[in-house]
Design a protein around this nucleic acid. Structure first.
Lengths: 272, 272
DNA sequence: CGTACGTTTGATCTTTCTCAATAATGGTGG
DNA sequence: CCACCATTATTGAGAAAGATCAAACGTACG
């Protein structure tokens, strides 16, 4: 909370290896929940189709009835909504291991779209299989709920970023978030990472204009808060950047949510 | 979708009657889920404390470990986050029947605060009781998940509103949302309602300045999109307002989420 | 009837947008 | 490996939406 966690390398591999695709989902759930060996094996029995997807392709369309749930295996994607005028607002970034449709697993239709940001691979699991799994396996069901709740928390911070931080602070905050999330899956070095978004994407994420994002990036660089070489962002002073951005990663709810383990009938927790 | 639902009066009462407080929660869940008589009775067995709360009092504090879950029985509340500079961003409005802590029912600590907007009453239920209920009763558990997901959908639309709509459109959209949600619980007439927010609150909800909200309200009124008498907002032409605001209430996910009923082992849904 | 809070108004300033052009970059086919 | 094309990034000048500051006005309520 007070000392800012650097983006850290973890064991989760990065390349488009030949690991079972759903191990990425397992790793993702285990960022916040504890699963048993049996739970992990159960997830690996889910049927899936693995597909390569090009940039900008849709993984989910606004208004559609979701029939399957995609799990991002490699590459990046984003959640997006459009205004009537066709202006985009990017709502979230998905990284490898993230599921596309947990957000609407029990809703009749999608209220936003998900599109690929880069080239990547997606494992599609039938929605009914996941629903059944979520309801028959308590640990997995809870892990999914925790994931949904953590994502909702990220939406809230995103709204604060868009609504109440100026361009410099908001952009710095977004870079911090992406750096930490990539670090947790081994896709960022402690002091640098490859930004998967163009400046136009950043603009749509922050409710700004590409031109202004460009100027803001240059302004952050001029102040020594970041360095850029092409699309590689590096942090000369991570802590200073976090302080400037007001970045406090609690809202990511990373780390196991241990307190949520209820001891049936036990009241002692309410006395803590 | 094509014809805009007017805010509608429902059977859910409004006054601070002597109904069992948790019937408000039941009505709230039944906006989107089907519950059996047994489920309803089960909810009514939850222990609770009913408290009157003054405006601005906290129902949940950012960073706190939630020990209990409040259910708003009367009055209004809002979810809020602060920047490091102390600027507020209101993230959501809670109306009678809404639960305060579903958003963090399985998370270790709250990532935002909830405060009363007006005077009101809140029924506090021990968090462990709710967790247990959510896990032991499938229908209620699913109803809670659906509620969490629907709220997340509202967060996303909120972000679009703040990030990509100009002040007039965003304000009109917010008024539409509040009108429809109040209508569904019988707190709005078809063409008018009592706005529970001050102009400063509206500003914090939209990422604007109170001065600008004031001017924007006057501008909407000058265009005949709304009328105001004190805090009473009325709609001379609801459909025109909806079109102007790009308000399409699908994102509220009101109406029973029937498709989410899985027939165990049945694959036929994937063929729809 | 006075105090606190909310609303309205005016003048001025800043951030961010718009439009338009130019320069890099990256990938592709030859 | 090079030439070419499409994207992406950068720059400049001018315009606009929204912010800021300060004050006056209403209204509600103890």
């Amino acid at each position: 909370m007070s000392d800012f966690p650097r983006p850290q390398l973890s064991a989760a591999a990065s390349g488009t290896s030949d690991r079972h695709p759903l191990t990425y989902l397992i790793d993702n759930l285990e960022l916040r929940s504890r699963l048993s060996d049996a739970d992990r094996r159960r997830i690996l029995t889910l049927p899936y189709d693995l597909h390569a997807r090009p940039p900008a392709s849709y993984l989910l369309r606004d208004g559609e009835e979701p029939m399957r749930c995609g799990v991002l295996v490699s590459g990046f994607a984003y959640r997006v909504k459009l205004t009537g005028e066709g202006e985009r607002q990017i709502l979230a970034i998905l990284v490898p291991g993230d599921a596309v449709d947990f957000q609407s697993l029990f809703l009749d239709r999608a209220d936003h779209s998900v599109q690929m940001l880069t080239h990547g691979e997606v494992a599609f699991v039938p929605r009914t299989e996941l629903q059944t799994l979520a309801r028959t396996n308590e640990a997995i069901g809870q892990a999914i709920i925790i994931k949904v709740m953590a994502e909702a928390s990220i939406f809230r911070e995103w709204t604060l970023n868009v609504g109440r931080r100026d361009a410099r602070r908001a952009l710095a905050h977004l870079l911090c978030e992406i750096a930490v999330r990539l670090g947790h899956i081994g896709l960022a070095k402690p002091d640098r990472f490859q930004l998967p978004l163009t400046q136009a994407d950043l603009a749509d994420a922050l409710g700004l204009t590409p031109v202004h994002v460009n100027r803001t990036l240059m302004s952050l660089e001029a102040d020594g808060l970041i360095n850029r070489r092409i699309r590689m962002i590096s942090f000369p002073d991570w802590q200073r950047l976090c302080e400037f951005a007001e970045f406090e990663p609690d809202y990511l709810h990373l780390g196991r949510q241990e307190r949520s383990v209820t001891f049936e009938g036990a009241e002692f927790l309410t006395r803590l």
